[in-house]
Design a protein around this nucleic acid. Structure first.
Lengths: 142, 142
DNA sequence: CTTCATGCAAAAAATTTGCATTTTG
DNA sequence: CAAAATGCAAATTTTTTGCATGAAG
């Protein structure tokens, strides 16, 4: 908790309970949509208003505390800022899992973008498929 | 034009003027948001309704004719289906350019996902940065 | 005690739906 | 012709805004 406070203050934001709860929930679940965050936070803080969620997500993304993870065919999710990594999106259950980027990949991308004079700042990789959990569920059901 | 007709019919969709215009516009500009598509198509087909745009984007994505390209902090764009490739998104002008995937990258991803038992079906890579065009504009302005 | 954040309600924007009419194959 | 698609208007859903009140530093 105390680390979230530091994080917010470093970013020039006041450490309100609403923000702390949002960060806690996002951290705990890894990747969440706005309404998933709202549903979770309202349980521990029933007076929370949707407007506050929206305002906070927006400002925390602006300040770099959160990162928006856009996903094909679904609502975007949000995660805590961390080193660039790969997202494995399960097209069945919608869950997102992280995978570390390899050094080789980063080098390849650096080379490729340099060739076309694109000033690379950030990368987002989404892999779509079926997660191991859904795969085993599918086998059982058949 | 005639190839779009074939494409639609192969996908089990009737080749209406509305759909042909949508495909033409998306093909011409590469990557477009729903309202960009609407704005362009309405010029050649003024009676077009927004509902038709939505219905068609949805069904053409379902049928695999179009692909949704989700983008951090912006509305999703749509493109014609083609081999997986990398998107370079300019954070300044919002334009999206394509970059071919390399064989090495695909192999790395295959290995990585196999390790964690993720059944990989499709990939989407977004690189965010400043396109060469905006870079030169920026220099001039300073 | 000043600045910033919240919550509420209203407004605006984006998307979806139902249905009568038209178009396509 | 039958099936599918369109256009319109209304209904939902999602997001944004303004402002009075309350909390944080």
């Amino acid at each position: 908790m105390t680390s979230y406070i530091t994080l917010l203050k470093k970013s020039g934001l006041k450490a309100t309970f609403q923000r702390l709860h949002i960060l806690e929930v996002v951290d705990k679940y890894g990747h969440m949509t706005i309404d998933e965050i709202y549903d979770k936070v309202i349980k521990v803080h029933p007076s929370l208003s949707v407007a506050t969620i929206y305002k906070n997500i927006i400002i925390m993304v602006e300040k770099g505390v959160l990162v928006e993870v856009p996903i094909m065919g679904r609502k975007p999710k949000y995660e805590l800022s961390k080193l660039d990594h790969i997202h494995m999106v399960c097209t069945q259950c919608g869950e997102v899992e992280d995978l570390a980027c390899t050094k080789e990949m980063n080098q390849i991308l650096e080379t490729l973008t340099k060739e076309v004079h694109f000033m690379l700042v950030k990368q987002q990789f989404n892999l779509y498929g079926i997660c191991s959990h859904c795969q085993s569920k599918n086998v059982v059901q058949k």
